[in-house]
């Protein structure tokens, strides 16, 4: 483990910004679960990242405007942290034309090309080579871009993970592979998925830099990501970033998590990234008034986003056949 012994120090503004980012994702996903219960989402498929927010927030905080991210079926947090609009997220989940994917993608497929979010993907590991290709193009063109590809521990069991990491290492591509290890690939624990629990150790075999980091402490994630992104941007190659975190809830709404014991859940819940960051801020003298203001702001943003989504027309059969092709057929007939 190369986890820093002590929490890295940052300026107060950065810590506040990180806390705001964490709370936005936490409250947004709580609202999404409410909407799901009230049958107001367009799809029944919905995976929340509650407990894992520090991964998205810590990594995205050190990316530059021109950088790219790719994400997973559990991707609301990556979308928001990268700069996707709350209104585009809510409208997408509610199946509206104002949604990020015009109401076709729902929870598992989000995108915002304008902020370098190249899509979240419902095939585990399926986007990892796509991220690698985006990094390849940046390298071939000499562009100062970095790609951050978020995926779960489950994806490391897929062959395409090996193909992608292997190539990124040998071609020294500007990419950070973020293994968001929430300990459970649906019902399979990490201990039964791999005989080598350390992502840093796996990285050694591929010949790239590997780091294991505490994913509940947003400052630790941010510090590790800052180094990895810096390496990538300097042409020093990719990083495999193993971030230890935990999915506080079930895999999806249908999952009661009966395969894991409650003491484990309680142990991780005691390390809630929102609360840890709140304590760090409080220790610097930030008072309750500020936290209350953040809560109000976030609440208002989410309420406005849901209201705007409801005002947008639902995705309809009228446009369901558009965009199957980008270049129409028959132009030359």
């Amino acid at each position: 483990m190369s986890t820093p012994d002590s929490t890295p120090s940052v300026d107060p503004g950065t810590l506040r910004r990180l806390y705001h980012g964490l709370v936005r994702i936490r409250r947004a996903e709580e609202s999404i679960l409410e909407l799901l219960l009230k049958n107001r989402l367009s799809s029944t498929m919905c995976h929340v990242s509650i407990g894992q927010e520090a991964v998205a927030v810590g990594v995205c905080d050190v990316l530059a405007e021109q950088d790219y991210v790719t994400s997973t079926h559990r991707g609301h947090g990556h979308f928001l942290a990268r700069g996707g609009a709350m209104s585009a997220l809510m409208a997408e989940l509610m199946g509206r034309q104002a949604g990020a994917c015009r109401g076709r993608g729902s929870s598992m497929h989000l995108v915002d090309a304008s902020v370098g979010h190249l899509g979240s993907n419902a095939i585990v590991g399926g986007h990892v080579p796509i991220a690698t290709g985006a990094a390849l193009w940046a390298a071939l063109r000499g562009q100062p871009r970095v790609v951050a590809s978020f995926f779960g521990d489950g994806a490391t069991s897929e062959g395409i993970f090996h193909e992608s990491v292997n190539f990124a290492a040998v071609a020294r591509l500007p990419i950070v592979f973020v293994v968001e290890n929430n300990q459970w690939a649906m019902s399979l624990p990490w201990s039964r998925a791999t005989a080598q629990p350390s992502i840093a150790a796996k990285a050694q075999a591929y010949g790239l830099v590997g780091v294991d980091v505490d994913g509940q402490d947003v400052l630790a994630v941010r510090a590790a990501a800052e180094q990895a992104v810096g390496r990538a941007r300097a042409g020093a190659g990719p990083t495999l970033l193993g971030v230890q975190t935990y999915r506080f809830l079930g895999h999806s709404r249908a999952d009661p998590s009966s395969y894991r014991d409650t003491t484990e859940e309680q142990r991780w819940r005691a390390r809630d990234p929102v609360l840890i960051t709140r304590e760090q801020l409080a220790a610097t003298g930030v008072g309750d008034d500020w936290f209350a203001t953040i809560d109000r702001e976030v609440h208002a943003e989410i309420a406005a986003a849901i209201e705007a989504a409801e005002a947008s027309p639902p995705a309809s059969l009228d446009e369901v056949f558009s965009d199957i092709y980008a270049t129409p057929l028959g132009g030359n007939r």
Partner: peptide
């Protein structure tokens, strides 16, 4: 390398960003 899925996936990723 002999990684067919990566070859097509990398082509797709590059295509998505301008290649």
């Amino acid at each position: 390398p002999m990684s067919e899925a990566l070859i097509v996936g990398a082509a797709l990723g590059a295509a998505a960003v301008g290649a």
